[in-house]
Amino acid sequence: MNLLEQGIAHHIGQDALARLQRVRIGLAGAGGLGSNCAHALVRSGFKRFVLADFDRVEPSNLNRQFFFPDQVGLPKVVALGANLLRINPDLELELHETVITSKNVHPLLAGCDAMLECVDEPAVKKLLAEAMLPTAALFVAASGIAGCGDADRIRTRRLRANFFLVGDEQTAACPDTPPLAPLVAVAAAKQADVVLHHFLHQQD
């Protein structure tokens, strides 16, 4: 057990940690939600991740995404993978630098016990929901995470047995309500919390 894992086991116990380490988590999108969500999940004890994102780190991402200025220009999945390995050097990461389409969504995320929808585009959110909801995997999506003020509007709703939705469901990211660090982090943390609660408290 490495230092982080010892530190986590101190809080939740070795059995619970071992249970979390068996879970395979898919993250669709490694931007504001995905990078912060992954960070929280690694510190929670999860170890096996599939990261998918087509994009590269840009200066405009640095206001809310878990990247650093010297990573501008890198593929987000590469930069995020490197940052996550600094938290836990023993992660099992599968990186896919790709756009998510109806053709690759199933092979990309097959075998994941949980899937976090962390993409920007509503049409891709829909695509992921339609692909994942009929499966047994836990699916945690986000909608309405932009702007600032009234942080409690970022709520979590359970819409099906395996489907949770985080956000205010109305505030789109746009020039009037840009995506900003505090609420994006709140939403990402709520997505991670759904996954953690599910796997920490479910029976084997």
């Binding site: 504001g32 585009e121 959110k125 929901a129 990211a173």
Partner: peptide, 26 residues
Amino acid sequence: VPGEEFPKTRLQEGDRLELLQFVGGG
């Protein structure tokens, strides 16, 4: 119901429908 089925899916008396529209940002 997958999106490509929307135009050919006809509703019937008593159907229960849930609709969720995503907004952008991630």
